[in-house]
Nucleic acid binder design. Structure first.
Lengths: 87, 87, 87, 87
DNA sequence: CACTGGAAAATGCCGC
DNA sequence: GCGGCATTTTCCAGTG
């Protein structure tokens, strides 16, 4: 409740808020641009006769493989710690 | 905008809405109860000397394995269809 | 050494671990079933012309309580005003 | 038969597929990096006393536009009133 | 053009 | 109380 008195329109907090929001919006644009690039790649692949559904499945499976490996490493780590050994 | 005139407090739509919300809330209680049961199992395991973090990792890995198998089946399916073969 | 450190898969601890994992997985299936029921209710509501997004909002608000809801709104309002926007 | 049907891993199509998947994965890493930057900004904001949940709400509202925002509020309001609640 | 499913975002939760 | 993880919710593209 400390702040409910209001962030004055021109106060320092207000300026900070504005800066934060703008930085986020800038980064989100950037992210969207990359997402669009990805779409373009899929579209191009499709134009070359690839089935995008399959393609996406391949990418997904590969990512899952990575995740699983990471998970297994994490587990190994846990066991090692449980045995009092460091990595 | 068709409905913006209002769902009368006692109208049919109002009664339906009430019913829907209550059904959802009932099911969510049920779900929460099950979630609490799961917590209890973890707590009991912990009391018996198991490390819950490890335990959770094990459960997660097992689930990922299932998912991965399902994904791979789905891909196989896609390929078979691509070859004009049915499952 | 692996044998000494690990929980042999025939040991008492191993049996207990197996039991724990199975109980958890059983309960998680149950939870998922209830979650699916909830989805069904939302789907039915949608078929009857309700806006599920707002329906979810209603359920969330009811669960949250007016108290917290009001607090959150106050902060949101504060931020928006600081940026020269209206609620 | 597998050879006939599949994309041999030395074929032109295979090379193209490899290139496509690699491009996608590269872009997805890039996207993730930007997403992490965004997280950092929220974390910094939090460290400065801002409520990240409402901050996210602000960003969402700005992206959405007053038009849609008003429409959603109208429906929510309608539902809440039908249940005898206030916004 | 609504529906389905899949990717992404957001919220909540648990352990430290 | 915070960071990370898991779940939930929302969004969006493809498809009939």
């Amino acid at each position: 409740m400390a702040q409910t008195a209001g962030i004055g329109h021109n106060s320092a907090a207000g300026a900070q808020l504005k800066s934060i929001v703008e930085r986020i919006e800038r980064l989100e644009e950037e992210k969207k641009a990359t997402a669009d690039d990805i779409k373009d790649v899929y579209a191009e692949a499709k134009a070359n006769g690839f089935d995008t559904k399959q393609l996406r499945a391949v990418v997904r499976i590969r990512k899952m493989g990575q995740q699983k490996r990471a998970e297994e490493l994490a587990i190994l780590d846990l066991y090692l710690h449980a045995l009092g050994m460091e990595l």
